[in-house]
Amino acid sequence: MKALVIVPAYNEEANIPFVLQDLQGFAGDVLVVDDGSKDTTAAVARRCGAPHVSHPFNLGIGGSVQTGLKHALRNGYDYAIQFDGDGQHRADQIEKIIALVEAGEADMVIGARTLPEGYKCGFARKIGSRIFSLLIKLLTGKWIADPTAGFRCYGPNALRLFSLSYPDDYPEVESIITAARHGLTVVEVPVLMRQRLSGHSSINRRKSAYYMVKVSLALIVDAMREKIAWREF
């Protein structure tokens, strides 16, 4: 089966070479999605010899992942891996998240970082994450321990659904609901993470309040929306 690693990158010129080097160990194609970066992200990707696409302006992480998914779908890839451009994800963990998709047992696999040795995060973030887990449980009946994790594998069904509709900003949680509502199997597997190399998380304290409200609202709106007839496309 053909796999595509999507690397969404916004102003990640410092981290991209490392990320691409890390990914050389993976037997699959790589696509860097430069989300209208103001730095030399695209040029750096080119110099590293990695295929890349560049948005004419910034669309947000959701738009970048979706561009990658569209590319995967149009070029005959069977599944795609979302692998962040900031160096937090580890190429040696990809096997773990693709196993269930390759076996046909899951449509979307999330690499959860909540387990021992996995990841240290702040108290506020833990609470926020727990609230999302509860909301997801309430809306889909499924318990996802780490709903904000961005290390994911999308199977053929997820490729088709998400190329039609994928949330723009803060898409991690919302996409779980979208997937579950459309009958896709979402599974979580534990993975190891790295502490971020350089730059800051896109979510600071000021933004996290907005994040909570926006995502919670989006979850409820999403649950009310009409379903997409993705199988027909």
Binding site: V33, P56, G63, R74
Partner: peptide, 13 residues
């Protein structure tokens, strides 16, 4: 615009 930007990026590649 969102869709167009994605198309432009993919077509350019």
């Amino acid at each position: 615009t969102h869709k167009l930007a994605q198309e432009v990026a993919l077509l350019k590649k």
